[in-house]
Simulated assay, not measured.
Amino acid sequence: MKKWILSLSLAAGMIVLAACGNGGDDTVVKTNEGNITKEDLYNAMKEKYPQQTQQALQELVYKKVLSEKYKVSDKELNDELQKTKDQLGSQYEAFLAQYGMDEKGFKDYLKLELLEQKAATADIKISDQELKNYYKKWQPEIKVRHILVDDEKTANEIKAQLDKGAKFEDLAKKYSKDIASANNGGDLGWIDYQGRKQFVPEFTKALDTLKVKEISKPIKTEYGYHIIQITDKKKKKPFNEVKDQLKEELKLSKVDQTKMQKKLNEVLKDANVKVEDKDFNGLFSEATSNK
Rank of each mutant, 00 (worst) to 15 (best):
residue 5 I to S: 15
residue 6 L to G: 13
residue 6 L to E: 13
residue 9 S to A: 14
residue 9 S to F: 10
residue 11 A to L: 05
residue 12 A to M: 07
residue 13 G to P: 01
residue 16 V to M: 12
residue 16 V to E: 11
residue 17 L to T: 07
residue 20 C to S: 10
residue 22 N to T: 10
residue 29 V to K: 08
residue 33 E to C: 12
residue 35 N to K: 07
residue 37 T to R: 06
residue 46 K to P: 04
residue 49 Y to E: 14
residue 50 P to R: 06
residue 53 T to G: 10
residue 56 A to Y: 00
residue 59 E to L: 15
residue 63 K to S: 15
residue 64 K to L: 15
residue 67 S to T: 14
residue 72 V to P: 01
residue 73 S to Q: 09
residue 74 D to V: 15
residue 75 K to G: 13
residue 76 E to K: 08
residue 76 E to C: 14
residue 77 L to C: 09
residue 80 E to K: 15
residue 87 Q to T: 14
residue 89 G to K: 03
residue 92 Y to R: 10
residue 99 Y to S: 04
residue 99 Y to N: 03
residue 100 G to I: 02
residue 102 D to G: 15
residue 105 G to N: 12
residue 105 G to C: 07
residue 106 F to Y: 12
residue 116 E to R: 01
residue 117 Q to P: 00
residue 119 A to W: 00
residue 120 A to M: 05
residue 122 A to Y: 07
residue 123 D to V: 11
residue 124 I to P: 01
residue 124 I to A: 09
residue 133 N to F: 05
residue 135 Y to F: 14
residue 135 Y to N: 08
residue 135 Y to A: 05
residue 136 K to M: 06
residue 139 Q to H: 06
residue 139 Q to I: 09
residue 145 R to S: 12
residue 147 I to L: 09
residue 152 E to P: 03
residue 152 E to N: 13
residue 155 A to K: 03
residue 158 I to H: 09
residue 158 I to W: 06
residue 166 A to Y: 02
residue 170 D to G: 13
residue 175 Y to I: 11
residue 177 K to E: 06
residue 179 I to S: 11
residue 179 I to M: 11
residue 180 A to P: 00
residue 180 A to H: 05
residue 181 S to Q: 02
residue 182 A to E: 01
residue 184 N to Q: 12
residue 188 L to S: 13
residue 194 Q to E: 13
residue 194 Q to D: 14
residue 199 F to I: 09
residue 202 E to R: 11
residue 203 F to K: 00
residue 204 T to Y: 09
residue 209 T to E: 12
residue 210 L to S: 11
residue 210 L to K: 05
residue 211 K to L: 11
residue 214 E to Y: 05
residue 214 E to F: 05
residue 215 I to V: 14
residue 222 E to H: 10
residue 224 G to Y: 03
residue 228 I to N: 01
residue 229 Q to F: 03
residue 229 Q to C: 08
residue 231 T to D: 02
residue 234 K to E: 10
residue 235 K to G: 04
residue 236 K to D: 06
residue 237 K to I: 03
residue 237 K to Y: 01
residue 238 P to E: 05
residue 239 F to G: 04
residue 241 E to W: 01
residue 241 E to F: 00
residue 242 V to N: 04
residue 251 K to H: 05
residue 254 K to R: 14
residue 258 T to C: 04
residue 260 M to N: 06
residue 261 Q to L: 12
residue 263 K to E: 09
residue 264 L to T: 07
residue 266 E to G: 04
residue 269 K to S: 08
residue 271 A to F: 04
residue 273 V to W: 04
residue 273 V to F: 04
residue 273 V to T: 06
residue 274 K to W: 02
residue 275 V to C: 03
residue 277 D to R: 09
residue 284 F to R: 00
residue 290 N to W: 00
